[in-house]
Design a binder for these strands. Sequence first.
DNA 1: TCTGGGGTCCTAGGACCC
DNA 2: TCTGGGGTCCTAGGACCC
Length: 442
Amino acid sequence: MQNSNPNPDNKNLFPDKVFALVDCNNFFVSCERLFRPDLEAQPVVVLSSNDGCIIARSNEVKAFHIPMGAPAFKHEQSLTQNKVQRFSASFELYGNISRRITNLISEITPRIEVYSIDESFLDISSLSITNYRAWALGVRARILQEIGIPVSIGVAPSKTLAKLASEIAKQQPIHQGVFSFAAVTQQAHDTALSSVSTKDVWGIGRRLALRLKVEGIHNALQLSALAPRRAQQLLSIRGRQMIAELKGLSCFPLEQTHKLQKSIMRGRTFGEDTNEKLIIESAIATMTSRATFRLREEGQATLRAGLFIETNRHKPGYQHWYREIIFVAPTVDTGQIITDLCQIFSTIHESGQLYHRLNVYLFDFVSGQHLQTDLLDVVDVRKHAKAVARMEAIDSINSRFGRDHIYYAAENLNKAWQPRRKLTTPRYVSSWKELPVARIVQ
DNA sequence: TCTGGGGTCCTAGGACCC
DNA sequence: TCTGGGGTCCTAGGACCC
């Protein structure tokens, strides 16, 4: 039935491109439930660093109208009353489960774009699928059985529509977790689009939704009817493309190749506000160390580093500072950047200020491979080569024995900045000591 | 008491050039 | 009265994503 065209007049419904979006349901919560099957159908949330914000909610919690990103303390009463199980986020675990899902999907097609930790686009144009709905149901069942994570799958001729389809699949239980725009009637297509409000369209955030509301546009169907010029006026060039995508014309290609990052940031809110120089220097050193590790992983070197530090925004007298260093030559040297940023901090440091959060930024990258040739007259080449070798040695040791196996002394001056994570789950997949124990009763 | 941690892209406007 | 016209590059800020 699905492979016969019920509406030959509408060319857009049968394009040559077909995308699928595989989107994990309540991903962090689902990961926690993997090791705690007793929490199935129980209300569960996952909390951000410092156990501050709610960053994932089970369906049961969504039903209590607790919004995404809400500060946990504001909903304390509701969380307690409803016996909501709380977990501190364990990104190591979530990343591990995510990679397992990616590996499974890659067996279905190599044409995959890992869009985020819990979403992947697939270009399924060249797969010989006769019934997209049946195909998606099969993929969904396989991921559930082999990994244990429930997903929603949307199928459509463009990525924006595939996102929308997965949203429909997730929100409307009647579809059993999958929804396809391929082989639907024009009427079913319109009904589906009109069931999604503009703010749930990929690329429409709070501001733009408000702007569209003023124009009398409230749902995806109305949005898709917007004239291209008007779309560009209201939503910029991306908006114009978005409208085309909603009409089934693919504008955003599958991004398969890894794009080099243009900036790297590592930051933390401290476990407790502090003025202690050693504590803050330790935080600077640790954030720098992690940012530069990522930089070298990418095979890049940086020309510019920034330090941002702030007091608590939610307290009176809020202040923030930002300073940058521009290096004379691109660098990958953690030690150099730590020294420079700590030096910068000493020019900001005021006694009496209670600092709350700190970010370290790196920008303006060049390929690490070009360093040697470009720098001959700018830097001490031998010194530079030594730094590179030192970094390579540290990275290889840490890659083999675990992050922080070898570290800069400055990172360890005083770890009191570390966020609180009181509700953490055992590291089931990354620590032998924390494996679940099973008893066999004979 | 308690409010996360990452990223990208686009646009407008100013500086500067010829 | 008349007060060039383009182009490029850079940056800050706004908007979005998960």
